[in-house]
């Protein structure tokens, strides 16, 4: 089958969830108990706002991830043609990886790979 069929799988997934949720909406009971709509916090009412500025602590990792994710764009096509191109491709990728690895090593030595 051709790639256009992908839309079918998208639709099947969406329909599956949609139909089941609508069905459940009909058959499931509905409560009027306001306590049930409270967000869960071990039985105690929530204090303060939930959506605060949140210190996630992996900001540096995210930046590093971006660099390496872009690197994959090169590496995937390279991997496909590696067998055919041979030595040139190998030398190229060695140089490429050494640069990447040095970057990683730099980040490592600068303690960027530590959760703040």
């Amino acid at each position: 089958m051709s790639n256009e069929w992908l839309i079918l799988f998208f639709l099947v997934g969406a329909l599956f969830v949609g139909v089941v949720v609508v069905f459940a909406g009909f058959v499931a009971p509905k409560s009027t108990n306001l306590q049930k709509f409270e967000p869960y916090e071990c039985g105690i009412p929530t204090e303060g706002v939930t959506w605060l500025q949140f210190n996630v602590g992996y900001y540096l990792f995210a930046i590093l991830f971006l660099i390496f994710a872009i690197e994959t764009v090169l590496v995937f096509p390279w991997a496909v043609v590696m067998k055919e191109v041979g030595l040139t491709a190998f030398i190229e990728i060695v140089i490429f990886f050494v640069i990447l690895g040095l970057g990683l090593l730099y980040a490592w030595k600068k303690h960027a790979l530590v959760w703040e």
Partner: peptide
């Protein structure tokens, strides 16, 4: 490094969360 540190550690309010009694 200093710039990165500043970005990572911003001042913010305390995030209070209850653990228990039903945990």
């Amino acid at each position: 490094e200093e710039i990165i540190k500043e970005v990572v550690i911003g001042e913010q309010e305390e995030y209070v969360i209850n653990m228990g009694p039903q945990h």
